[in-house]
Amino acid sequence: MNPEKRHIFSVLVENRFGVLARVAGLFSGRGFNIDSLNVAETHDKSISQITLVTHGDAQIIEQIYHHLNRLIDVIEVTDLSTAGTHVERELVLIKIATDDPQKRTEILQVAEVFRGRVIDMKPASIVLEITGDEGKLKAAIDIFNTYGILELARTGKIAMLRGAET
């Protein structure tokens, strides 16, 4: 068996009704995994960008690549994990209980370490925004967990190739 690896696909698609369903349906129908999925319009309103994180052995990844390309509304597929070096970011919102002032101070200090921003503060809770790669977000979440996370929302990854390798 080939080892399973994580791959990030950048998929440019027509910004059209039903495209996301076609992509998601392809993965569920063929038994491929989706670890995270992010979709949004690009600077060109007619094109959407899907960033899709998946894992599988080399044969599966190749199949995913070809099957994505087979969809009529897919303009371009790039496997960022093999196409060159890339940058990736994810954004997470974390709501933490701050029942005593001492705890709040600590949380703000920790947030600073992760370059987090406070985007909401109430007497009993605080909402932080942190961006970063997977490792950084995991470290942040692990620490904030010790303070009691009330709620967490994350975007899933977005990524692109460095420099002129587009």
Binding site: F17, G18, A21, R22, G25, L26, G29, I72, D73
Partner: peptide, 13 residues
């Protein structure tokens, strides 16, 4: 469109 999505090459509504 939903029902036929996995069994057609493409579809239009």
């Amino acid at each position: 469109i939903g029902v036929t999505r996995p069994i057609c090459k493409h579809s239009y509504l």
